[in-house]
Write a protein that binds this DNA or RNA. Sequence first.
DNA 1: CTGTTAGCGCCTTCAA
DNA 2: TTGAAGGCGCTAACAG
Lengths: 339, 339
Amino acid sequence: MKPHPVTIKDIARELGVSPSTVSRALKDHPDISEETRRVVKELADRLKYKPNAIALSLKNRKSNVVGVIIPQIVHYFFSSVISGIDEVATKYGYSVMIAQSNELFDKEVEAMAALADGRIDGLLISISKETVKYDHFRQFKEEGIEIVFFDRIPDDFKSDSVVIDDFQGALKAVQHLIDGGHKRILHLAGPQTRLIGRKRLKGYLQALENNHIPFDEKLVVSCDTFDKALEKMPELVSSGLQFDAVFTVNDFTAAGVIQSLKLLGKLVPDDMAVVGYGDDDIAKMIYPTLTTIRQPGKEMGIRAMEMLHKRLSSIEENTEIVSEVLQAELVQRNSSLRV
Amino acid sequence: MKPHPVTIKDIARELGVSPSTVSRALKDHPDISEETRRVVKELADRLKYKPNAIALSLKNRKSNVVGVIIPQIVHYFFSSVISGIDEVATKYGYSVMIAQSNELFDKEVEAMAALADGRIDGLLISISKETVKYDHFRQFKEEGIEIVFFDRIPDDFKSDSVVIDDFQGALKAVQHLIDGGHKRILHLAGPQTRLIGRKRLKGYLQALENNHIPFDEKLVVSCDTFDKALEKMPELVSSGLQFDAVFTVNDFTAAGVIQSLKLLGKLVPDDMAVVGYGDDDIAKMIYPTLTTIRQPGKEMGIRAMEMLHKRLSSIEENTEIVSEVLQAELVQRNSSLRV
DNA sequence: CTGTTAGCGCCTTCAA
DNA sequence: TTGAAGGCGCTAACAG
């Protein structure tokens, strides 16, 4: 059985004083005499006394724990975000509780329910691909748990959030290709049910428009994984569709494109330029190295946690909702022509 | 301010019964009448009553939370482990608290201290590269918190653990190269201060010995990152050192080797076979795809969490220490010759 | 300067 | 079948 951990009472009994005296001495309450303080602290040290966080949470109705729910931990971007969250959380003395939704709505709801038992003060969440109903968020808020959304945010639910400017990011990517002399740019797009997929497509369209390049709808194809790219590229190339560059919705898809082009005997970037999105680990490890858009994942975690902390430590109730937008940045490597 | 969450008392007051009655009704205590149970449950539902986990933890001296400490979240292998832990933890109703040590001893101790306040029932940990003292683990145990080590375990501290058989893994990798007709195999090794680096080197040596291939110490070079590989390979190749295959301590290093060989005009696998270690995401995304050793990361998380659960739910005190060893497996791809 | 009391939310004797 | 009391560990208000 667990050994009984030492409590304030133990110290009090040992010293023949009351628990409250010990409590006060331990936190340097001015009412307590120097002498008592010294003795109490010494014994506490010797007994390796540690305040019981659970008891404190119960008393203060504050746990100093934040919850994090993400679609997939096994993902460079999300793990970077967590890393940033961890850094800031530690700085302010919060612990971090984590759960993944596996991109499933039901698991997301379940994970939130598991945290909604008074154990967390606030929640940081990036919503699953399936999530289109927001009742569970609403209820959380009603229970007084603050929510900060990051990266994948709900369309019409008001709460603090941090996102990356996907529109600008995509714009930069496509402008870069255009600067390299490309006019027929294939876009392998993400699902249009999600904001991210839509924003990146919009950036693509805007870049074309800015440069007076007519839009050809055949050049936008839904395809967002490595495997799908391996499958689709041969069809696209043999279909006779003309294009001299590819802009993909993420780096894995770009890796698939490059791999596929190699098998098809096309040279990157000479025959075909490729730009990805995300600056995932793999971007600099594939050959040729991948030009892509860097997403500040860790930065996002840092900002989100800072926002949550501000909420949690602010006295006033209804301060304005804060929405932060981080800028994505072009990283030029060898899969596209230098400009 | 936080809205007061609904408690058992609220329900009791509303219904004109005592809190204990409500408590019992809610958990189907046989003493309570059908009728009362029904009414209580209905109101509880309507009020969206949720038992307060903090209060329960305090009462039961059990939080149903486990802590996880890892060197780096941003790492395919570790995030896979967490994913496995999360899966099993959810299954048994535990929440998961996470912290990273960033490979620093001090941060590891700090992170553990932050969790050692009654909030976790058990700890899953992979120790930092710096950690050589184990007092903090000892103290944890004394406080009655169970520990399960995974992947990176302490040399001489007794506790449950799960590791991967690195010796066998390396043996398989090198045997595979030998089967492909290679005799001069370069090993880019990890730091010999860590068990992992040593075990993989041992596997390399054993494979040579098994096949009566003389060992040339010039063929073992310390090099364990993508960038270092880019730097070292040109030197090694131009130094005149003869070798026709490379076995690296991890996949990132292998990716660097392949990248570098490409720049040096060497064909993989024809001029040079390459085998990595870890089956990281990148292994199938680089070109040629990388033959490597799969480390069952998720499986490891699953096993570790199962072990911890068993400990936590067992009545008896001093059951035997359990050490599990998972097998690594060869994944043949295109960077080595098929055998 | 220090002790007593009460309560955070829940459960578990014990008593009715 | 139900209620009252006490306690998990800690602290804040109120008394000395």
